[in-house]
Amino acid sequence: MASRRRFLAGLLATGLAPLPTWADAGDPSFLSAARTPGGDYVLVGLDDAGAERFRIPLPARGHAAAAHPTRPEAVAFARRPGTFAVVLDCRNGDVLAQLNCPQGRHFYGHGTFDGLGDLLFTTENDYRAGQGRIGIWDARRGYVRIGEIASHGVGPHDLRLMPDGTLVVANGGIDTHPASGREKLNIPTMRPNLTYLDIDGQVLDQLEPSHYHASIRHLSVRTDGLVGIAMQWQGEVAEAPALAATHLRGEDMRAMGDGSGLNGYVGSIAFSGEGSQLAITSPRAGVAQVFDITTGSVAQLVHEVDICGVAAWRSEMIFTSGQGAIFDLANSGPPNAMHDLTWDNHLVKIIPG
């Protein structure tokens, strides 16, 4: 056995051994954080049918994850205002690295790799300055932190990689501090924005929603660069405007639908697999709204208790709920799969490079 290990190590050193891929982790299609019936927290890999491929323990409640584009590695992020993120080998559950925010920072629960998987970008709060930051980590060297750039806003929650290799950031506009838990500290003066950045931190475009109480929180990006935007309303629920929009750089933000029936809260967003529809979910209202991109109108309503996770699936989209269900739009019968898990907010699609 020792001789075999030395032999394999020698092959890896010479670059002759095949590098591990997502197929070595069961070929999952999605990642989701979840809570077990016993109260433990896990990161789960799911295949295209919703079956479990792996289950890896997490140190605390997870929020979202970032999947490496080539290696079977996932970065699981703590729920805001968490200060940890763990890099997991999805073949065996080993912790490859733990990312710790610099002093005076916390994570916002999201991150994204660049197209090659060389760099990881994370949304962070410099709570002493009350400003957002994007942390930059080198995945080629054990996820060492190599720098940061300004998010050019307050409360950067989600960020996504654009087709041209730049970044788009959802600056929610809400200031928080770990000493105050999840309390929102600046609602009267909040100013959310959508910011496009190159990886050197230069602002390429920036715009604000029409209502300053519409906190931009989650994003989805279509292959042509159209950005789907999900917002959470910080004013009176009855006064909520549209909480979904789309945007192309250089153009105005295009609102979709209205905020009625969402209880002021949108938890996740995703384009359909073929890109003609956009879905937002509201676990508080138990509903998903599915929009036709061409007309901007609601094409379908999906009613499900505690619905939140959504991702592109085949030509359509697939959803998860806090009741353990996984289901798609076309299925009017039983769910595609049921699990003894409480799925957390996000269903992350793995897109191998």
Rank of each mutant, 00 (worst) to 15 (best):
M1S: 13
M1D: 08
M1T: 14
R4N: 08
R4V: 15
R5D: 14
R5F: 11
R6F: 14
F7N: 07
A9H: 12
L12A: 04
A13T: 08
T14F: 07
T14V: 14
P18H: 04
P20R: 02
P20I: 08
P28E: 07
S29Q: 12
F30P: 12
L31Q: 05
S32Y: 10
G38S: 15
D40S: 13
V42Y: 01
V44N: 01
G45I: 03
L46M: 05
L46D: 01
D47G: 04
D47W: 01
R53A: 02
I56L: 12
R61Q: 15
G62M: 04
A64R: 14
A66V: 00
H68D: 05
P81V: 08
P81S: 05
F84V: 14
F84I: 11
A85F: 08
N92V: 12
N92W: 02
D94N: 15
L96A: 02
L99S: 13
N100G: 11
Y108A: 08
G115H: 14
L116V: 15
G117W: 04
G117S: 09
D118A: 09
D118P: 01
L119I: 11
E124Q: 03
Y127W: 00
G130Q: 04
R133L: 00
G142S: 06
Y143Q: 05
R145I: 06
I146C: 04
E148K: 06
I149E: 01
I149T: 09
G153W: 05
G155M: 00
P156S: 03
P156Y: 11
H157T: 13
L161A: 02
M162F: 09
P163K: 10
G165Y: 03
V168R: 03
A170V: 06
T176Q: 09
A179W: 00
S180F: 15
G181A: 08
E183Y: 01
E183C: 06
I187L: 06
P188K: 02
P192D: 06
P192N: 07
L194A: 06
L194N: 00
T195G: 04
L197K: 02
D198M: 04
I199E: 13
D205Y: 08
S210G: 14
Y212M: 09
A214T: 09
A214H: 02
S215W: 05
H218M: 13
L219I: 13
V221P: 02
T223S: 13
D224T: 05
D224Y: 01
G225Q: 06
Q232P: 06
G235F: 03
V237R: 12
E239N: 15
A240W: 04
A240H: 03
P241A: 12
A245P: 15
T246A: 05
H247L: 08
G250P: 08
G250T: 00
E251I: 10
Y265G: 07
G267Q: 09
G267W: 10
S268L: 06
S268V: 03
S268E: 13
I269H: 11
S272W: 09
G273I: 11
G275V: 00
S276L: 11
S276Y: 15
A279P: 01
S282A: 03
P283A: 09
A285Q: 00
G296Y: 11
S297M: 13
Q300G: 03
H303T: 04
V305K: 10
D306E: 14
D306C: 01
V310E: 00
R314A: 09
M317R: 11
A325N: 07
N331V: 05
N331H: 12
S332R: 08
S332L: 09
G333T: 06
N336V: 14
T342I: 15
W343L: 01
H346M: 07
L347M: 07
